[in-house]
Design a protein around this nucleic acid. Structure first.
Lengths: 337, 337
DNA sequence: ACACCTATTGCATACGTTTGCAAGAAAGGT
DNA sequence: ACCTTTCTTGCAAACGTATGCAATAGGTGT
């Protein structure tokens, strides 16, 4: 285990000053002759600049902190992968922090991130206390909320158009001729969950229909399954359920099938997210697509421009996605499928 | 956006030297009086030590690099989450790097990691060129391969007992009375895939049976599904398929069902990993469990002890997991299920 | 030949911390 | 009261890089 090679050693071997070496590797101007000498010396010594030292002096760590809670929901690994790739391409890297749930421990973790001098923070589906948001703002560290808005926090956010998405899903069920439509909502403590429910309620109201039921699924498989069983066990049952996200919808489908019901003959199910699993034949879930690639793109550009701008302002970006009609819900009336 | 608070400012406010502040925050000894003064001053200024500067001087970044390829296989997000939690608990953090596939671009990415002065590297299901392994060794950066062995590389690895696991899965199919058993193997370029196949072949040989077929599924859903369709389309069909991992097994189940076959009446399917999805009713997949919690635990302790030991040696850890009998395969003969 | 401008280079300092060293203070033993 | 031991504390030197400044070299126009 040899000591790390430093720019000074390269300088000595190349017969130039340490500054020259630094300039060659940081892209500053240098004469072709020096560039050549330095590169050659660096090659033989196996020199690579110390990113930490560079970060220290420039104040730019080129590290983005990512806070994430639910990696079991397939939506997030996919987003994580794309975020990582997109940021890597821009020369940034991801320091990842997992938190047990959406609210708990976020503060401590973000403090930890700030200690690491991250240049920006992406909070995926977790909320931040307003005092913490202020702390970040004061430290000049931009925050982008991914797939979770937080109005009034002054934080940028990138989400899908949840109200509209909720409307679309619900409208599809109405158009299919369903009359007893229930909603197993996403967690009421999250804007995402509330907005999708809002879309559901609006679509129902527009059609002069009253919801069969609305229950909070808490973005939790077990709770969603339990709710579904309860809904389907009465004498009067829903003939369609709009579920707050795919992750819960799979559990709902499992539960409903487990009771002997056919999907979509006995009950239509629609989810939200369009995770890869939704298209697998075992579920074949009708769902509202969250265009993860465009959401990631928006997140990255928002974050990077906030990092570079002297005085960034909060952006609230909503991205629309289509309804993907699959086999878990009856097709709209008058449409051959 | 105010400048960051430094230890010097705290020192001034507290009326002590900068070293005193450092000592208070790095846990070195100091008198109760100074500790109190410093803590109070730090509190009012909102001071937090700069981890980068600390890393620079101590040479300990407390960062672990994680290289990961396939986040769509549910096994890895779960492992990632647990790894992150376990390392966070020990005061380490994860700098994550995604690579497009198991071999490509790993070298560049690892160089990148080393530039960041990571103290150790976890490579999940990717292989490293031997020259790269040597580079890491020379730099004194321990590497642990997670869920992928690489004999002769001198690298530590944590895997499940793949040969034994392959045997168990196959034996279960034999015990269930199957006679035409096929294997859709994991990628032949990976030790994991080869060993599971080896286990399959050994169990078949022990029972004096010849494999119906062995094909390379490349750990890829599409290839696995395609292979399954091909196997099932001939006149003579397998009555059981052992698939190299759950991720492929789901695709195989979808494909087989899509052809109108019943599982397990027409064909039994067994996978490997026991990812959460395997227990969901839609698949209810019999599979060999990889005990991710114990694998993570072993990975973390191996890595951390390698970091602290002066002269670490490579450890090859294999962890055994049970066969989880579920509904996708016929139960063993003579057993009521 | 001279003045002038530009490109390149080295020197020295800075980034924010940890830590060896020595000096001073406090405490304890005889 | 004095010597010895133990704590505490400040000084200053690192860690490895970037960068402002001044000096030098080289080139161009008159």
């Amino acid at each position: 285990m040899t000591r790390r090679v430093t720019s000074l050693q390269v300088a000595e071997l190349a017969g130039v000053s340490q500054s020259a070496v630094s300039r060659v590797f940081s892209g500053a101007s240098a004469s072709p002759a020096t560039v050549d000498k330095v590169k050659k010396a660096a090659e033989t010594l196996g020199y690579r600049p110390n990113v930490l030292a560079r970060a220290m002096i420039t104040g730019k760590s080129r590290i983005i902190g990512l806070v994430v809670a639910y990696l079991d929901n397939q939506f997030y690994p996919e987003a994580l992968e794309r975020l990582s790739n997109a940021l890597q391409e821009k020369g940034y890297h991801i320091l990842i922090f997992t938190v047990p749930n959406a609210t708990d421990g976020v503060d401590k973790v973000v403090q930890d991130l700030m200690d690491h001098q991250v240049e920006g923070i992406i909070a995926a589906s977790v909320s931040m206390s307003s005092s913490l948001a202020e702390t970040c703002a004061r430290a000049g560290i931009p925050v982008v909320l991914f797939n979770r808005g937080q109005p009034g926090s002054g934080l940028s956010s990138v989400t899908s158009a949840n109200i509209k998405g909720g409307r679309m899903a619900t409208q599809a069920l109405i158009d299919a001729g369903h009359s007893r439509i229930a909603h197993i909502a996403g967690w009421d403590g999250s804007l995402t969950g509330r907005e999708r429910r809002e879309g559901f309620e609006a679509a129902m109201a527009d059609a002069d229909m009253i919801p069969f039921a609305i229950v909070d699924g808490m973005y939790n498989r077990d709770i969603a399954a339990q709710s579904a069983r309860q809904l389907m066990s009465g004498d009067l049952r829903p003939d369609a359920i709009f579920v707050g996200n795919d992750h819960m919808a799979f559990a709902v489908m499992d539960a409903v099938r487990g009771m002997g019901f056919q999907i979509p003959q006995d009950v239509s199910i629609i989810g939200y997210d369009d995770v890869p699993l939704a298209s697998w034949p075992a579920y074949d879930l009708t769902t509202v697509r969250q265009p993860v690639n465009r959401m990631v793109e928006a997140t990255v550009t928002t974050l990077l421009s906030a990092i570079n701008d002297t005085d960034p302002y909060a952006e609230t970006i909503e991205i629309e996605g289509p309804l993907i009609q699959r086999g878990s819900s009856r097709p709209p009336k008058g449409q051959m499928q």
